[in-house]
Design a protein around this nucleic acid. Structure first.
Length: 268
DNA sequence: TTCCAGGCGTATC
DNA sequence: GATACGCATGGA
């Protein structure tokens, strides 16, 4: 990772980073493609427009970004401290993982906000990505930003009707209630042993094994969490009937993201 | 029209 | 513990 300040922008040189593969691969739902090389989106409510200026040189421009926001927020959000080349080398001991890493070598795991990831993946269940984005758009439009659990404290399944989120509205309401009451402390969950953390999240109505794993992986950077959705289930049946290879141990969640993207895009 | 989507709660065995 | 089914919505 190398960067310099260019006027009001940050110029970032970063390998193993592709905007489509990272910002539009189903892990985050508030990034919008502006043109071929540019996305606009948010971490919490801090906006960013980011462009790939030169693919060959791994050069990116973070528009209107202070050095402080870059170092304090985006460096962490974009997981710039993790060496994905080294991870891919380890993963590539396995033939399928090798192909998946080669297919989309620019995937990174975003270190998202706990509540946003949890509530987003509650919305994601039995749903498709364009529609998930639509529901989250309406939620943010309504509040003017991504609402905290505190901001949503008076919502009911009925008052959330404008989301057109179907049966998921009541699940959101239960999550809001448990987080606001302190019954579920997301900061505490983030540091629990993984199985205990999973069980704690699953006390929320509408949070099962898959949504819990997604909240842990994408909202709390628990990279050992392994969410299994319909696509990853196909991966397991097709390539890993006896379980994941040893070379992904400890980083199952990151491996999962390569595999998820791979099977969705090769017509599995 | 039917099927499906980054699943889960509930009923039933 | 495993399996079957319904669930809101909207695009293909």
């Amino acid at each position: 990772m190398d960067y310099k300040i260019d006027g009001s922008d940050i110029l970032l040189e970063q390998k193993d980073f592709d905007l489509d593969e990272t910002l539009d691969c189903g892990q985050a739902f508030r990034w919008r493609k502006i043109d071929d090389n540019t996305y606009s989106g948010f971490f919490l409510n801090l906006p960013l427009t980011i462009s790939c200026e030169d693919k060959g040189k791994n050069l990116f421009r973070l528009k209107d970004t202070s050095e402080r926001d870059f170092l304090d927020k985006w460096y962490n959000y974009l997981d710039l401290s993790t060496d994905y080349s080294e991870l891919k080398r380890r993963f590539s001991e396995d033939e399928t993982m090798s192909k998946a890493c080669e297919f989309a070598g620019g995937i990174r795991i975003l270190r998202q906000d706990k509540w946003e990831a949890l509530s987003s993946f509650i919305i994601s269940q039995n749903n498709n990505i364009p529609r998930i984005k639509g529901i989250i758009d309406r939620l943010c439009q309504h509040y003017g930003e991504y609402p905290s659990a505190e901001m949503m404290k008076d919502e009911t399944a009925e008052s959330l009707g404008f989301l057109r989120s179907g049966f998921r509205a009541k699940y959101l309401v239960d999550a809001v209630s448990k987080v606001n009451s302190g019954e579920l402390n997301l900061d505490a969950v983030a540091t629990m042993p993984i199985e205990q953390a999973r069980q704690a999240l699953m006390t929320i109505k509408g949070v099962g094994p898959k949504v819990a794993q997604c909240a842990l992986l994408f909202g709390m950077y628990r990279v050992e969490a392994f969410p299994v959705d319909v696509w990853v289930k196909r991966v397991m049946e097709r390539w890993y009937p006896n379980g994941l290879p040893d070379c992904v141990k400890g980083y199952e969640g990151i491996a999962q993201q390569y595999l998820f993207h791979y099977i969705r895009n090769i017509g599995g």
